[in-house]
C-alpha cells in the first residue's frame, strides 16, 4: 500500500491518541537497561514514524509538540536542558523524516526514513551538547553516538515496518477516511 496517497486532516482526538502512544513507548524505553547513561533508543518516535503515512505535516508537528511536552510533564523535565534537547532532537528528526517521506517517494522505505530521523536527532543533540554543555573537546564523542543513532534508527525502522505490514488496527486507521476514525464522544472531532 502506498499510503502517501492518504493525506487528509485527521481528528485531533487521534493525534492525542498517537501522543499517548509516544509516551507509552517512552515509558517502555525507560525500562530497558542502557549501556551508557545518555543512550536513547528513540522508541517514542515509532508512532510519529507510523503517522507519517496518513497525517499531514502540520499535524505531525502538532504530534511532536504533544510528545515533547507530555514527556516533559511525565518526567518532570519540562523546565530543564533535557526538555530543550528532547524538543530540538524531536523536531529536527520529524522535519527530516517528513522531507525523506515526501521527497524520497518509493526510493526510501520506512527503515530509511527512521534511520535519517534518528541521525538528525543525534546530530542536533551532539551539536547542543558541544555548544552548551561539554565544550569543543567533546566532538570526540560524536562518532560513537552517531553509530548508536544508526543502530537505534534501524531497530525502530524494522519494527515499524513489521508493525505496518501486520497490524490490522494500523491498516484500518491509515486506510480510513478522516471522518470515520474520530471518536464521536471526544471533544476533538474532525
Amino acid at each position: 500500500m502506498d499510503s502517501r496517497q492518504h493525506r487528509h486532516e485527521v481528528p485531533l482526538e487521534l493525534i492525542a491518541f498517537f501522543g499517548a502512544l509516544c509516551l507509552f513507548f517512552s515509558t517502555l524505553e525507560y525500562l530497558i537497561p542502557k549501556p551508557v547513561p545518555f543512550f536513547r533508543l528513540g522508541l517514542a518516535n515509532l508512532p510519529i514514524l507510523l503517522a507519517l503515512s496518513f497525517m499531514p505535516p502540520r499535524q505531525i508537528l502538532l504530534l511532536v509538540l504533544l510528545k515533547v511536552i507530555g514527556q516533559g510533564l511525565v518526567g518532570g523535565t519540562l523546565a530543564s536542558y533535557v526538555f530543550l534537547f528532547s524538543a530540538a532532537g524531536s523536531f529536527m528528526s520529524a522535519l527530516v523524516m517528513l522531507a525523506a517521506h515526501h521527497l524520497g517517494g518509493r526510493a526510501i522505505s520506512i527503515v530509511g526514513v527512521s534511520l535519517l530521523g534518528s541521525l538528525a536527532s543525534n546530530v542536533v543533540q551532539i551539536t547542543l551538547s558541544v555548544t552548551f554543555i561539554f565544550g569543543q573537546s567533546s566532538w570526540i564523542i560524536a562518532p560513537p553516538f552517531l553509530a548508536i543513532g544508526v543502530a537505534s534508527g534501524l531497530v525502530v525502522g524494522l519494527f515499524g515496518r513489521r508493525f505496518q505490514e501486520r497490524s490490522r488496527w494500523y491498516a484500518a486507521i491509515a486506510g480510513l477516511d478522516a471522518g470515520s476514525i474520530g471518536h464521536p464522544e471526544g471533544p476533538y472531532e474532525a
Binding site: L12, E13, I15, A16, F17, G19, A20, L21, L23, F24, T27, L62, L65, L66, I69, G70, L73, G186, P187, Y188
Partner: peptide
C-alpha cells in the same frame, strides 16, 4: 494544546 494534553493523558492511562 493544554486540552489535547488532557486527552493524551486520558489515553496514556488506558494504554498503561
Amino acid at each position: 494544546v493544554g486540552g489535547l494534553l488532557g486527552r493524551l493523558f486520558f489515553y496514556f492511562e488506558r494504554v498503561l
